[in-house]
Design a protein around this nucleic acid. Structure first.
Length: 201
DNA sequence: GATAGGATCTTCT
DNA sequence: GAAGATCCTATCC
């Protein structure tokens, strides 16, 4: 599979990119091993959208969201969990695609270890379906961290990247976004119809 | 299976 | 002081 290049991230507006990323594979080559999963659920956050972290001013927390297309925005949510976004649009604009769920394809044992380590339970606790069916869960399972990946890149030699689509034969379902109150009516969430790995139906 | 409440930190009012 | 792009646990069917 081919690593997606700068052209791919620049080619689409953020809403289109959120849909185009479905079926692509997110890969992390860490010192502990390689983990990967097919992106099955995304949400778009746009300029002028009150739910977007870049809606107000640039702060230390959201600075990475203003980076160039193909870079990574990781943030702390609810003081406890992390979520990962793919920055889109041109540098300085502040738009991104939140990755909400993956279908695990590689390094499932390592994903189970990472999830179990956090909770202090046996690694056999988690079924494959439960490993990455939520934005903070997949960040944990993939070993993505604020220190290593926030404001980093998916391009060139980066250890985190996305491949060209592994699946294309599916229906894209569009709904409103999960867990927000501002902009709650906007239809900016997309997922692969029929997937067992999405966070919610 | 469904629902309610808690954990814990950054940002904004 | 309150809310937030979440997840986990307890408790109740």
């Amino acid at each position: 599979m081919q690593r997606l290049d700068l052209h791919f991230y620049q080619k689409y507006d953020t809403l289109t990119l959120a849909k185009e990323l479905l079926g692509c594979e997110l890969v992390h080559e860490s010192p502990e091993g390689r983990t990967a999963g097919i992106i099955v659920e995304t949400e778009a956050y746009l300029t002028g959208d009150p739910a977007c972290h870049a809606y107000r001013k640039k702060t230390a927390r959201n600075a990475a969201m203003f980076g160039p297309a193909g870079s990574v925005y990781v943030y702390l949510i609810y003081g406890m969990y992390h979520c990962v976004n793919i920055v889109s649009a041109e540098e300085g604009r502040g738009e991104a695609v939140l990755i909400r769920a993956l279908e695990p394809t590689e390094g499932i044992g390592l994903m189970q270890q990472r999830r179990a380590e956090k909770k202090g339970v046996a690694s056999t606790t988690f079924t494959v379906r439960e490993l990455c069916n939520g934005p903070a869960k997949l960040v944990r399972a993939m070993g993505i961290t604020l220190a290593d990946h926030n404001a980093g890149s998916l391009l060139d030699g980066a250890n985190l990247y996305i491949t060209s689509p592994k699946q294309t034969d599916f229906e894209v379902v569009t709904t409103t976004r999960i867990g927000i109150t501002q902009g709650a009516e906007l239809p900016y969430r997309f997922y692969i119809g029929g997937s067992r790995f999405v966070s919610k139906k």
